[in-house]
Amino acid sequence: MLADLKALINTWMGERSTRNLSLLSRQSGVPYPTLRRVYQQENSPTLETVLAILNIVAPTEGALEFLGQHFPSVGSWVGKLVHGYDAKISSGDFNEELRDRISFAIITLASAGGTTFEAIDSMFGEYGLNKLRRLLEMEAIHERDGKLRCRYDSFSVIDPRIVLEQIKHTVELFDMNQIGQPAVTAQLHTDGLSDSGVQELSRCMQEFEEQLQRIFHQHRGPQVVMLSYISSFLSKETP
């Protein structure tokens, strides 16, 4: 696994003379000493570190191939998502912008059918327009047919830190005034489950994802939704 990861890092660094481990550390958020030990194949990184590195160094199919080979269960989930939506795994500079709440909102609007200067101004004011100018400058967003559109038509992020940061954005952007309208919900469940309950829950979420995929494919339109969910264990007994 380490040799394959090193090969991907080498390919990425070989593409431009300005690329080195230090830049990779900055773009991936992985501390330099950790990255150096991984590169020198001295220790096995956590999955979180692997995903953060892959998100920068590997193109979509390269990342999926690596995950499929070394982390099949995660690779299967991500692969299904990426292929199902015909999405590209987004690049490092783009992902950095998603960490800002307003930039996230602008990118979301631009990627879901396009937006305009006027819309951004009315929603986020001068602060939003400044963010928009920055996104235009770095070509994360461009103008086409009178609309501001995203660099990617459909994209996926595989760095779990950025996925979670975006989920936080969706919480902050949640509009309480919409409660009561169809598809506006805030749900939370905490309880103890047996192993079979966990399996059942996992199956249920997979089916839900498959249904979402069908809905997003078949019912495109102007209502831009933010739907996010997370599920994990507060405590888990090791077998």
């Binding site: 989930w77 999405a87 038509d153 459909s154 595989i158 975006q166 996992s202 997003f216 495109r220």
Partner: peptide, 18 residues
């Protein structure tokens, strides 16, 4: 055109995925 996906569809899952 109707079937072309757009937007962000992202996430990390696993376990016994699919």
């Amino acid at each position: 055109f109707n079937f072309a996906a757009s937007g962000q569809h992202t996430g990390i899952g696993g376990g016994n995925a699919f």
